[in-house]
């Protein structure tokens, strides 16, 4: 046997081993999702047994959850929270990120460090006084305490946008200025179109953060069932609506669906965005 075929054989084995591992991992990552889907289709009684495969396929479960719980209200609230918070965040955070990336001013370094600090701070640290502020305005029991602050910038989004904006070569904005564009017009006309991938990424991140958020709505909207979001409803689904695991899993699947669908369409944006979060 020549040396060459030994090497070849080694690479083939390696190839097989890698793919076997990858397939095993894929099964582990997908397993829970499949199990949730199967349970969602079981009958009430079967969901209380350890049988894996539905005896009867109860597609009606998906209709039943809409009757049992105000899912449409939860979806509406979740959308309201996610859309408004994302829009507000973009309006307020882009100029800040731009200034941090491009302007030269005193305290610029300090400002950036403070952005990172607030980004890293657990939200529970300042929860009590902020709750009191909203209680004073009688806005507890609604989602507004989670939406309105987005008008004042979001540290994580500022950080991410700034990381991207510093990579845009200065020549572009300089050229725009030569053409007589002011700073703001340069931002809108030249920088924003170039930063589209980053903006799309932070918008998606913000949207999904809100969509998945549990702590925030629990703190502020937990008291008022009319303001509940999908996350809140889901966590209390089984006990408040007196249903079994199958319906709970059907609702779980429903909450996951939009996220997964959007991900398939916007996969690239996501992946690029996640890469931005790592430091280079």
């Amino acid at each position: 046997m020549t040396r060459r075929s030994v090497v070849r054989r080694g690479t083939v084995l390696l190839w097989v081993a890698r793919h076997a591992l990858a397939i095993a991992l894929a099964l582990m990552f997908l397993g829970p999702l499949v199990f949730i889907a199967l349970t969602a289709l079981m009958s009430d009684r079967q969901a209380l047994t350890s049988d894996l495969w539905p005896h009867t396929w109860n597609w009606g479960n998906f209709a039943e959850i809409f009757e049992k719980a105000p899912l449409l209200t939860w979806i509406r609230n979740t959308l309201l929270y996610s859309v408004l918070a994302t829009a507000f965040m973009l309006v307020s955070s882009i100029p800040v990120a731009y200034a941090l990336a491009r302007f030269r001013f005193r305290g610029r370094r300090l400002a950036f460090l403070l952005v990172i600090t607030t980004m890293m701070l657990p939200p529970q640290v300042v929860a009590v006084p902020i709750y009191l502020i909203w209680a004073r305005f009688h806005l507890t029991g609604t989602l507004w305490p989670l939406i309105l602050p987005m008008l004042l910038g979001d540290a994580f989004s500022i950080f991410l946008l700034r990381q991207f904006l510093v990579t845009i070569p200065r020549e572009y904005s300089d050229a725009a200025k030569v053409d007589g564009c002011g700073e703001f017009r340069t931002l809108v006309r030249v920088i924003l179109p170039m930063a589209r991938p980053a903006i799309a990424a932070v918008a998606l991140f913000q949207f999904f953060y809100c969509w998945n958020d549990y702590y925030g709505p629990l703190l502020y909207a937990g008291t008022d069932l009319d303001s509940w979001t999908l996350s809140l409803g889901l966590a209390a689904f089984r006990s408040v609506h007196r249903v079994q695991w199958n319906l709970t899993m059907a609702a779980t699947l429903l909450a996951m669906a939009p996220v997964i669908i959007v991900f398939f369409f916007a996969q690239k944006v996501f992946i690029e965005g996640v890469k931005l979060t790592g430091v280079k």
């Binding site: 949730i36 999904f208 899993m249 779980t252």
Partner: peptide, 21 residues
């Protein structure tokens, strides 16, 4: 795509699924 997917699943939904699993 498959390996990244679970990272997107809402925390509450993922936790519910896991506990039941």
């Amino acid at each position: 795509t498959i390996f990244y997917l679970p990272a997107l699943v809402p925390l509450v939904a993922g936790t519910l699924g896991f506990v039941f699993l």
